[in-house]
């Protein structure tokens, strides 16, 4: 079981506040999931259809994507047949291993990091549907970059929603960074043009661009977003280095469609999973990673300025399935 050992080692050697935060934020999730899983194993002696049906429900409850669940269950069934597993106790290890595999795939950790330019301007574009927390996340991220000693600027690209520009301005004041803005109703592409020019002139390290929330089935609005991105590309070749999709952890299966269509329009490079401090589990990111290959780069675990945490897949999975993995390890040590 070197695989689990690796995770354990990694965690014990790098115990910092961050993984504590993860654990804290996910305690409810984990307790819930693990209790259910153990309960399930205890209740069903034999691995049969009913067992799988209930396992399916546990995964559904965490909002894990539909296709992902179906695929996982199929693979598990095959594995059960192959290894001739009859006792539910024996399947637990297989389940937890498969879950971690789904999340991680063949990727290395590089993928989860932000692509920042050294000594040059990096542009980060935020996209997403309405009300997921784009502006708030931008504020938190700007705060972090500022703490790291970077020169940060913000672009108020949400010219549509009432009060959106003011909201970003308040964050700008809080964090102490400049906000480039036009008036309400202005062309967002023009705001981006000005922002990139200004960031270049002022030799900023990082420009974070806000955009108006839009539902992915509004074709015109998605086209507008494409245009916004094109303007940034034109004014600074190679930019935006990151296009981050803000995703509300409470969102259900629709999140997959969101990720797919926003990716088509703006080539999303990563996800920020917001509002993970509630009771929602955000399991849909498993499906997004598996089906679209978009990694999660940050998670929002609260409303405070420092409540935005870089995403670490192993820790997240550990947080979700900690007890399962520990049980597994104990068993293999025997």
């Amino acid at each position: 079981m070197s695989f689990f050992k690796k995770i354990k080692d990694k965690l014990t050697h790098s115990q910092d506040t961050m993984s504590d935060k993860f654990r804290e934020g996910l305690t409810k999730t984990r307790d819930n999931f693990t209790t259910k899983m153990n309960d399930l194993v205890a209740r069903y002696r034999t691995v049969d259809e009913d067992f799988f049906e209930e396992l399916e429900e546990i995964l559904f409850e965490a909002d894990v994507g539909f296709e992902t669940i179906v695929k996982l269950i199929d693979e598990l069934k095959m594995e059960v047949r192959r290894q001739n597993i009859k006792d539910t106790k024996d399947i637990r290890g297989v389940i937890s291993k498969k879950l971690v595999e789904i999340y991680q795939g063949d990727d290395d950790e590089e993928n989860a990091l932000l692509q920042l330019q050294e000594d040059e301007l990096t542009v980060i574009l935020f996209v997403g549907v309405n009300g997921v927390g784009k502006t708030t996340t931008i504020g938190k991220l700007a705060h972090q970059f500022k703490e790291d000693g970077k020169k940060v600027m913000l672009a108020a690209g949400d010219t549509f929603r009432a009060g959106a520009i003011e909201q970003l301005e308040v964050w700008g004041q809080r964090v102490g960074v400049d906000v480039i803005k036009h008036g309400e109703g202005a062309d967002p592409a023009a705001v981006m043009y000005d922002a990139v020019q200004s960031a270049k002139a002022k030799k900023a390290d990082i420009l974070i661009c806000d955009t108006a929330g839009r539902l992915q089935n509004k074709v015109n609005l998605m086209k507008e977003l494409e245009k916004v991105k094109k303007v940034i590309e034109r004014e600074l070749p190679g930019a935006p280095q990151e296009v981050l999709l803000a995703l509300d952890a409470t969102t259900g299966q629709n999140a997959l469609t969101q990720a797919k269509i926003f990716k088509e329009a703006t080539n999303v490079t990563g996800i920020v999973l917001t509002k993970l401090d509630g009771t929602a589990k955000g399991g849909i990111v498993l499906a997004i990673k598996q089906e679209l290959g978009i990694p999660v780069k940050f998670v929002g675990l609260g409303e405070k300025m420092d409540d935005l945490q870089p995403f670490d897949a192993e820790k997240y999975v550990y947080g979700l399935f900690a007890d399962l993995i520990e049980d597994e390890k104990a068993e293999s040590d025997e």
């Binding site: 409850e61 965490a62 909002d63 409470t250 259900g252 009771t279 929602a280 849909i284």
Partner: peptide
């Protein structure tokens, strides 16, 4: 409530 809410809608 957001119509896109997933399983957590019941808790909320």
């Amino acid at each position: 409530v957001d119509a896109m809410t997933g399983q957590d809608a019941v808790n909320v």
